[in-house]
Amino acid sequence: MVYQLTFHREIERLKNRFMVLGSLVEDRVRKACAAILTRDPDLLSEIIGSDWEIDEMEIEIEEECLKILALHQPVARDLRLLIAIIKINNELERIADIAVNIAKRVQTISKDSDLEFTIDYHPMSARVMQMLKMGLDSLVTEDAALARRIFIEDEVVDQLRNQAYKGVLRALNSEVGHAACLVNLYLLARHLERIGDRATNIAEEVIYLVEGEIVRGDTE
C-alpha cells in the first residue's frame, strides 16, 4: 500500500477544483460560439456578466498552488503538475476573457442589421471547442499523444482565420458603409484563433507534465 500524505490529498483537492474551472471555461466558449450563430442578446449578456466567476476561481487556484509550493516544496511529477496547473490556470482565464470579447463583438455586429455578407464560423468554432476539450482531456488523462494532436488542429484553425481575413477584405470593397461591422466580423476569427493558440499552450504544459520535457507547438 502507498501512504497518502496530507500534501497528496491537497493536490487531489486542487486537481478536482481545477477541473471545475476547466469545465466552466469550456462552457463559456461553447456559449460564445453558439452566440456567434444565434446572436441571442440574453446569452450575450450572460457571457459578459459572468466572467467574474472565472476570475475569482483562477485567483483561488493560483493561491492554492502557491501555498502548496511554499509549504511542501514538491518535486518531480508533483512539481510538474503544480507548474502545469499554474500555467494552464492562466490560459483558462484568458480563454474566458476571449469568450467575453467574442460576445462583445457579436453585440456590435448585431447592431448592423443591413449587412448581407457573413462568414460561417461554425467549422472554426467546432474545431476550437474540440481543441480546448482535447487540451483538458489530455490533462485529465495525462495523454501527451492527445496533446500533440492539438498542434495539428491549430494549423487548420490558422488557415480558417486566413480565409476569414480574405473574405472580409473582399467584402470591405463590395459592402461599402459596413466597415465597422466587417472589422468586428474578422475579429471573431482572430478571437477564435487565439483560443486555439491558448489550447496549444495547454498542450505544451500537458506534455511537460507527462514527459518532463519543455516543448513548443510551433517547433514541432
Binding site: 477541473m19 469545465s23 466552466l24 469550456e26 462552457d27 488523462t141 495525462e142
Partner: peptide, 14 residues
C-alpha cells in the same frame, strides 16, 4: 455549466 462540470470532473486522473 453544471452538466459540463460533471463531464470533466467525473473523469478520474489515471
Amino acid at each position: 455549466a453544471a452538466q459540463a462540470v460533471l463531464k470533466i470532473s467525473d473523469m478520474p486522473f489515471p
